[in-house]
Amino acid sequence: MNSSQKKYLRLSIVMLTVLFFAVSLPLNGFSYQYIDVETPKGYSLLLMGGLAFIGGGLFETLIWTANPIALIAIICFLKESSTIIKIHPVLKTVIPKPKLRSYWLSALAAAIAWSFSLWNEVLAAESGSMGKIVSLGSGYWLWVSSFTILAIGIYYFPFKGVVSESIK
């Protein structure tokens, strides 16, 4: 696999992840029963999820942390998979590539996101009242899919060159 194909594959993994994530934002995240059935949109969950700990939602904030973890994984992946060989300016030697952290970070983000599907209740009010989760919306499934695609893509990326060259 040549460097332009690797660059295209790397960009495809990131763009597909970002596309799924962006499409999930205007869709329903999940529905829960408190007084009435509430169905927050993905963008409100993204904007307010990080502040859930203020109302006592420690576990809800933990689920929200999948977002910044995935962002860090994308940044690490772009650094780790760079095709540019860097030479130290003073020592004139090749600078070694950073250790692979992106796969573990993306797998952690996906695991955190998937773990929400096991929940039965979610914090419904700042008083600490819980609401029963009625259903998971299409926004949730696209959100989880974006992190799953990222983890699978990052895992697959280093093997793509090895597999294609061994077939030739």
Rank of each mutant, 00 (worst) to 15 (best):
P89N: 01
L108T: 07
A125Q: 10
S106K: 06
G128Y: 14
S129K: 12
I72V: 15
L78D: 11
K86T: 00
W104Y: 08
N120A: 03
I95A: 07
S117A: 12
I85E: 09
I112Y: 03
E121G: 07
A111S: 10
I87Q: 06
A66L: 02
F77K: 05
E126R: 09
I74A: 01
E60D: 08
E60R: 02
I69E: 08
M130L: 11
L71T: 13
L108N: 00
L123W: 13
R101Y: 10
L78P: 01
P98C: 06
L62F: 15
V94C: 08
I69R: 04
T65Q: 02
E80A: 00
E80W: 08
I63C: 04
S115I: 04
S115A: 07
A124V: 14
K99Q: 10
V90C: 04
L108P: 06
A125E: 10
L62G: 13
K92R: 14
A124I: 12
V90R: 00
L71N: 10
A107S: 14
S106G: 02
E80L: 02
S106Y: 08
W114T: 08
A70L: 11
A111P: 01
I95E: 03
P68E: 14
L123K: 09
C76Y: 08
L91F: 08
G128I: 10
I87D: 02
I74T: 06
L71P: 10
A73R: 11
E60A: 15
A111M: 01
S117Y: 10
G128N: 03
F116D: 00
S127Y: 12
Y103N: 09
I69T: 07
S117P: 00
L118P: 07
S129G: 14
K86G: 00
W114S: 04
H88A: 06
R101C: 11
A73L: 03
L71S: 12
K92D: 10
P98H: 03
P96F: 09
N120T: 10
S106F: 08
I72F: 05
G131W: 10
S117H: 00
W114P: 01
S127I: 12
L118H: 05
T83V: 05
I63M: 12
S117G: 07
W114E: 04
S129P: 07
A110N: 09
K92W: 12
I63H: 14
I85W: 04
I63Y: 15
I87K: 00
K99P: 03
K79M: 09
W64C: 13
L118E: 09
I74F: 03
A110P: 13
K79G: 00
E60Q: 13
R101E: 01
K99T: 12
P98S: 07
L78R: 07
S117F: 02
I95V: 15
M130A: 13
L108G: 10
A107M: 15
P96T: 11
T65V: 08
T65P: 03
I63D: 07
I87A: 03
M130F: 12
I69D: 05
V90N: 03
L108D: 09
I69L: 08
G128L: 14
W64F: 11
A110Q: 03
L105T: 00
A73I: 11
I75Q: 02
V122G: 11
L105S: 02
K92G: 02
T65K: 05
W64V: 10
I95N: 00
S102Y: 01
P96A: 13
P68S: 05
I84G: 05
T61Q: 02
S106A: 11
N67E: 12
P68H: 04
K99E: 02
I72N: 04
